[in-house]
Simulated scan of single mutants.
Amino acid sequence: MRLKSAEIIAAYDAIRPDFAQTGSPRLAGGLNIGAQLHYQLSTDPTLRDRTAQIVTYPQYWGHRLTGIAATDVTSIGCHTDLWSPREGVFSTLPAALAIEGKIARVRKSTEVLGTILPDISQATCLPLNTQVRAGIHDSNASLYPHILTQTGSFSVVSTGTWVIVMSVGGDDAPLDPSRDTLINVNARGQAVPSARFMGGREYEIIQQGHPSSPSDLDIADVLASSLMILPSVDPRTGPFQGRQMQWSGEEPDVGSGRRSVALSFYLALMTETCLQLTGASGPTIVEGPFARNAEFVAMLQAATDRPVLTSDAATGTSIGAALLMGGRANLVQPVRSKDATGLAALKAYAAKWRSNLD
Rank of each mutant, 00 (worst) to 15 (best):
S281N: 13
D305L: 14
P289F: 06
T310Y: 02
N293H: 13
E287P: 01
F290A: 02
A298N: 15
Q301K: 05
P289R: 09
T284W: 06
R306Y: 13
S311M: 10
V308Y: 08
D305Y: 09
D312T: 02
N293F: 09
E287F: 08
T284Q: 08
E295Q: 15
D305W: 04
E295P: 04
S311G: 11
G282E: 00
F296I: 01
E295N: 15
A302P: 05
G288M: 04
P289V: 04
T304L: 04
P289T: 07
D312R: 03
L309T: 10
S281M: 10
L300N: 11
Q301L: 04
A294T: 02
F290G: 03
S311F: 10
Q301H: 14
E287D: 03
L309P: 03
A302G: 05
V286I: 13
Q301E: 14
A294V: 14
R306Q: 09
R292G: 06
D305I: 00
D312Y: 07
A302N: 13
I285F: 08
G279A: 15
P289A: 08
G288E: 04
F290H: 03
F296D: 11
S311W: 05
A298T: 12
V286F: 03
V308Q: 12
I285L: 05
M299Y: 09
F296C: 13
Q301D: 08
T284P: 07
G282T: 01
V297Q: 06
A302K: 08
M299C: 14
L309F: 11
V286C: 00
L309S: 02
P307V: 11
L309Y: 04
G279C: 11
A280P: 12
D305T: 06
I285D: 02
A280V: 03
A280R: 06
T304I: 09
A302Q: 00
I285V: 13
G288S: 10
L309H: 02
G282I: 05
P307N: 10
A280M: 13
A302E: 03
T278N: 12
A298P: 04
T278M: 02
T284A: 00
F296A: 13
T304P: 01
P307G: 01
S311E: 10
V308H: 01
A298E: 14
T278Y: 00
E287R: 01
D312Q: 04
P283D: 08
N293Y: 09
D305N: 15
S281A: 14
M299F: 11
D305M: 13
I285S: 03
N293Q: 01
P283Q: 09
P307H: 11
R306L: 12
F296E: 09
M299Q: 15
D305R: 02
T278F: 07
T278P: 02
I285A: 10
V297N: 03
A298S: 06
A303T: 14
V286E: 07
T278A: 06
V297G: 02
Q301A: 15
V286N: 05
